[in-house]
Design a protein around this nucleic acid. Structure first.
Lengths: 230, 230
DNA sequence: ATGAACACTTAACAATATTTAACATTGGAA
DNA sequence: TTCCAATGTTAAATATTGTTAAGTGTTCAT
């Protein structure tokens, strides 16, 4: 569900910028820092794709508002958080017109920034994932990932959340190798030993659910991961 | 013709205050911002009538609590929302004694604040103008969130406040995961154990209300929250 | 004031989901 | 082959959620 989140950070105050970058990285966000609006724009085009932009409004070369407009030209949907240092009524109004997702005023606490980032990422990641909501045909089975239901022949099984998430990943990578660590990071977030064993347990469960059609099979690729054969 | 909802906003942090004001205006609420308790009190007497007050607790000249007391002297019924830092539960309890309707802890998302305002306006006046679609179609059911009425087929059920608030949130996030903590923060304010159990009870109630249409379903996403399937 | 009606919370217990543990099996490198 | 790490499988332990009912407070008409 959660891939690595990549942030674009545009902040001209070098001290604050580096501090933020360091903190965000420590919190698990891949973060690129740019010292002004132009650099940020270039960085945005070159180092795509970013998941979220954090833009200071007061910046040299190109201010945050117009930077946001330019970014939105390239990507309608990318969430933007503005950092505002001053009493900037008109700019703020302007900002709402271009669809900023949230604002945060200096001085702010790191906790607050993280909170907002998480809130926004939750929203958009769910929007994005709703595209993955799909219906898969697996031999005699039909898997509705949105409802988490696996129907085959006459029976209809309600899968648990973890079962459904894992089967979704397998379906997305049907006939290709689904890497263990990728699956662990997306579903379990952490790829430690215990979660890995937990995943093994769920592979067993899925195999039982799919046992009625010999054409459908989850095979192990030793040391790499699993492959769903259809 | 809907009448405009008029808000009094008392917040000494100028940046936060202006941002909130602009955001609320963008959301269709007429909003006056005052930088301290005394100014807010004067503004309240001069620019009547307000429909709702949003008061920061920590303010110079006159803090939010005593401001609220004074405002209540003039108007017994006006709804008040306090803005408070996390570690100020005693003050908040004090606040409830004088009849605060709600409080919200910083940091909060704009989304949460809007939901609170709407919830209160719903409670206070049935014809409050809400920028949101107040009517949802759920399979055979129709849910009017303003009137808190769920009608399906021939039956018509009057939902309780909590039922309606929870169903509203679910509808806003239809086919996506509504996170437990988000729902708890927005509806129950605190996301402690007991409130979480209370929410589970309400999920059961909603499921019963929606049981006549198998196409409509509230499924649990283990460890994350609930998803309304339509 | 009194109490019935209602909304909400808390408690108690049931049912599921997930993780951890334990032991069996397999695959591949030394 | 031999041995170790990776995987398979089952069951116990733990955590989360489902459900019902009792408890608590509020409202409102009498």
């Amino acid at each position: 569900m959660e891939k690595k989140v990549k942030l674009l950070l545009a902040e001209d105050d070098e001290n604050l910028g580096l501090l933020l970058k360091e903190y965000l990285i420590a919190k698990g966000y891949e973060t690129d820092l740019y010292p002004d609006g132009e650099a940020a724009y270039k960085g945005f085009t070159k180092n795509q794709p970013y998941n979220l932009c954090i833009l200071d409004i007061m910046m040299p070369k190109k201010d945050g508002i117009s930077l946001a407009k330019d970014i939105r030209q390239l990507n309608m949907d990318i969430p933007i958080i503005f950092l505002t240092a001053k009493n900037m009524k008109e700019d703020v109004l302007e900002g709402f017109k271009i669809g900023a997702d949230d604002y945060i005023t200096k001085p702010f606490s790191m906790e607050e920034l993280i909170f907002r980032i998480e809130a926004i990422m939750r929203r958009v990641s769910q929007d994005a994932n709703s595209h993955e909501d799909a219906i898969y045909k697996l031999g005699i089975y039909t898997f509705d990932s949105r409802k988490q239901i696996l129907s085959g022949g006459e029976e209809e099984v309600k899968l648990t959340t973890k079962e459904a998430e894992l089967l979704s990943l397998l379906c997305n990578n049907a006939n290709k190798v689904l890497e263990r660590n990728f699956a662990l990071r997306t579903i379990w977030i952490d790829d430690n030993y215990f979660n890995a064993r937990s995943m093994d347990v769920y592979i067993t469960k899925l195999r039982k659910h799919l046992k009625d059609d010999p054409k459908v099979e989850i095979i192990n690729v030793h040391g790499k991961g699993y492959k769903l054969i259809v």
